[in-house]
Design a protein around this nucleic acid. Structure first.
Lengths: 221, 221
DNA sequence: AAACATTTGTCCGTATGTATA
DNA sequence: ATATACATACGGACAAATGTT
């Protein structure tokens, strides 16, 4: 079989990117704690690269809001607090509602089928209390809708918010997430709205699907 | 008079930040054209700094979507096209509508007063066909509302979108913007909604205030 | 195909600035 | 207040990769 020419993204992976991804993971899963000071020298040794890619990674993380840099002084992991739940979810709800409205007008049958699949996966994971799998399926479900809305700005903002939310779940709830039967049904309502090309219903169902878990999270903390 | 201790942000300005700001300006005002290749060496000489801060600036610009980096190969200014008008404005409208709804519940009299001032400035600039001043006053008006909504995620996304929109206006319309009398009145409706603490009206008026100029821009191109 | 000219990616040294004793 | 230790910001050199002749 002929190898398909290294299609889509030949982009080789640089030391900077590896450093960035790894440090990001450590912040999200709590290995690097909120408020912790990051030392270039220490991390560069741990990661087996020089200080330059680590420095560059810090700056990217700063733009994403995962660390705060005080030039010439230090770089620290940002804090996160209960108030952020509302700020994160309300923003995400606004963006995903928009995405759902736009997607409702143009989404293809094939993508709808994929959404159904993902929701089945999600339901199964919920059934079996596999919280991590449920979270992943849920995120994929939402991301596919944002992709269908064909808006790179929304997509990038959404990814950024999801990261912070994930971090929140890890730090505060040790990965316990709000995957419930209710969410499965909300997903079905969204899919139904897509099939009927009903943008309004799609947007509303999407908002519901984000506002409800937000309230639950707030109640838990 | 005693100098006030370098209050709030003592944060010294680094070479990286200067490079970042300058290159960003050049991209937005079209000095650096869409699709143009950026050379580290050339820019570092122009800016009178070494390649390091320039490289760092490139990476930040990439996160903001103003340039695209192909690792090991090159970095280019991103393209922009008519389709982006809808993508940019619809996203901005969703975020600003949210901001207006939240702000309506909590905004203080003082800030409302400041909004009135800004809208007077805006109206005056529109009256005198000072398009640049009008654009600036309009942006300040919107930004103040987002600040009032007290959500750093929305604020940072909004700033990012405004940059792209500004770039759009420069590149396609040579700074001709859609500042009309209609916008002045829409601003008044938003202010009125704030005074009545009517979140729904605030959000709707805000959407109107963004969807209308979007349509006008689309018509013009 | 191979050597060349460019340009980027990475490393590390040094100066400058910051915090601490 | 001064000195000391330390971390960062920046520069410059080299290595690796790209695409070009």
């Amino acid at each position: 079989m002929p190898i398909p020419k290294d299609f889509a993204a030949p982009a080789r992976t640089t030391a900077k990117e590896r450093a960035f991804s790894q440090i990001q993971r450590w912040i999200i899963d709590g290995t690097l704690q909120p408020g912790e000071k990051l030392l270039e020298a220490e991390l560069s040794e741990t990661l087996g690269v020089s200080r330059t890619p680590v420095r560059e990674a810090f700056q990217l993380l700063e733009m994403g809001g995962l660390v705060a840099a005080y030039p010439g002084r230090e770089t620290r992991v940002t804090q996160i607090e209960k108030k952020d739940i509302f700020k994160l979810y309300s923003t995400l709800a606004a963006l995903h509602a928009l995405a759902a409205e736009v997607a409702a007008e143009t989404i293809e049958a094939e993508r709808i089928e994929r959404l159904k699949e993902l929701n089945r996966e999600f339901a199964e994971a919920v059934e079996n209390s596999e919280v991590y799998q449920a979270m992943e399926a849920d995120e994929k479900f939402h991301r596919l809708i944002v992709e269908a809305s064909d808006n790179p700005y929304t997509l990038s903002f959404s990814d950024s918010l999801q990261l912070h939310i994930r971090r929140f779940k890890y730090v505060f709830l040790q990965q316990h997430v709000d995957s419930t039967q209710a969410s499965v049904h909300e997903h079905l309502r969204i899919i139904e709205a897509f099939e009927r090309r009903n943008a309004g219903q799609a947007g509303e169902a999407m908002k519901q699907n984000l506002i409800r878990p937000m309230r639950e999270l707030e109640r838990l903390l």
